[in-house]
Write a protein that binds this DNA or RNA. Structure first.
Lengths: 238, 238
DNA sequence: AATTTACAAGGATATATTTCCTATATAGGC
DNA sequence: GCCTATATAGGAAATATATCCTTGTAAATT
């Protein structure tokens, strides 16, 4: 599990900003100026828009965000107005949080919105798409550090069937795209609509072998064709 | 544990924005406009500055952020320019992410910097102060959602002594100020310099009774005067 | 090939924010 | 109370960004 632990560390452990040091104002102002324009470009891209299309969508003149207008002829940087940015954000259904995520390369890891549902509900239809990702409208949401998987979801445990590890009411964070290996704690969805939280013992081309988290329950060997998805459990509340 | 689970939910579960719905642009623009001015005011306050002193510190004219100039005579909202905001941030040694926290009342909870240390090291001297809070310079740091305890710390498990619950390399988040009750998973520090992760069975005026997380180990009953601190485990990596 | 559409550069003008300036209010020190 | 410094309101002018408009290019459509 050392590799697994390191992976978690890599994702969450960050070099945080130290005390501000003496800096030249001009250098920083230029940096933020570039970042703001870049963020607008990324915002446009994310919505499959060109800068001019983003401006138009925002009710601004199509030339407002032109690259050619980002520096004056006299070499002075031109800053988009705060109002223009607000309009662009609104036109794309984005909020200021998302914009500032785009702005700052040196930001701490962003919080991720993680959909949350009860464990018992997870087997019902309509909550996952074909890829095993959360879908539909029955999900609540929690905030958590970026776990490196946009499709991560949270399940709230119900009942005592996963003791001693997970108690009633605990919340587990699941990454459906994370690679899994022997020993990982996983959530498995079967074609029968079952949702299981187990430890992965072995995975072959034909079967998935799972060890129960509750020692009172036996191991489970599933034919691979009965397994819809396997997601790795990455955090658990206590 | 229902109350415990609810407590965690209260701290982390947030009502996040749903899908954008039809909204009048003017209403939203006004909202962000107010927020940005308010954020500038809070930024000034945080540095014991008035709006005019903040403007001056930023190299702007002292009237730039005057309250009297935030709406034009014709009723049109005036927005501070992005350049002015950038200068104010730089003058106060703030970055855009700190500004974000000030801007948006509906922002997700802030990230908390949580000190991290190896479990085996935690019993060594110099890592905790008298109140059981992290101290000294041997701590690494991770980012985590605000757990409601400024003194929370993280311990990285080493060894197999806490199986099946915690494996080698797992990281647990501990709140030293959280109240604990029977059934809580806790980290106990003793006067002998031991650090134990156990489940709290009973706490009386004279003793603390702990159930081992590893069923191979017996329960432990400690005289209260041997117990330095008890912190509650609130999250665990998997 | 001709036309239409989208995108972007560039210039002139309109509009919005900052700057400059003045006056008044407030707070702190003597 | 007086003096000084700071904070704030308000008006005019300077400066900066948005808007309007034109032109050129590329790609898609007819």
């Amino acid at each position: 599990m050392l590799v697994c632990a390191l992976r978690i560390r890599e994702q969450i452990f960050i070099p945080l900003a130290r005390d501000p040091v003496a800096r030249s104002l001009n250098g920083i102002a230029m940096l933020n100026h570039d970042q703001i324009w870049k963020a607008l470009d990324v915002l446009a891209q994310r919505h499959s828009l060109s800068p001019s299309a983003l401006a138009k969508k925002a009710g601004l003149d199509s030339t407002t965000f032109n690259k050619s207008k980002r520096m004056s002829l006299d070499g002075r940087p031109r800053w988009p107005s705060t109002e223009s940015i607000a309009k662009a954000l609104d036109a794309t259904g984005s909020n200021l949080n998302e914009f500032l995520r785009l702005v700052s390369d040196s930001a701490p890891p962003v919080l991720q919105t993680i959909p949350l549902i009860g464990f018992a509900q997870a087997g019902d239809g309509g909550f996952f798409d074909d890829g095993g990702f959360p879908a539909g409208s029955g999900w609540d949401e929690i905030a958590f550090p970026n776990v490196g998987d946009d499709h991560a979801y949270a399940l709230e445990i119900s009942g005592d069937s996963m003791l001693p590890l997970y108690r009633d009411g605990d919340t587990i964070i699941v990454s459906p795209t994370a690679s899994v290996r022997r020993g990982d704690r996983v959530v498995v969805r079967t074609t029968d609509g079952e949702v299981l939280a187990k430890e992965l013992r072995r995975q072959t081309p034909k079967t998935v072998e799972l060890r129960s988290l509750n020692p009172d329950h036996g191991d489970r060997i599933l034919p691979i064709e009965h397994v819809t998805t396997i997601g790795r459990i990455i955090w658990s509340s206590q």
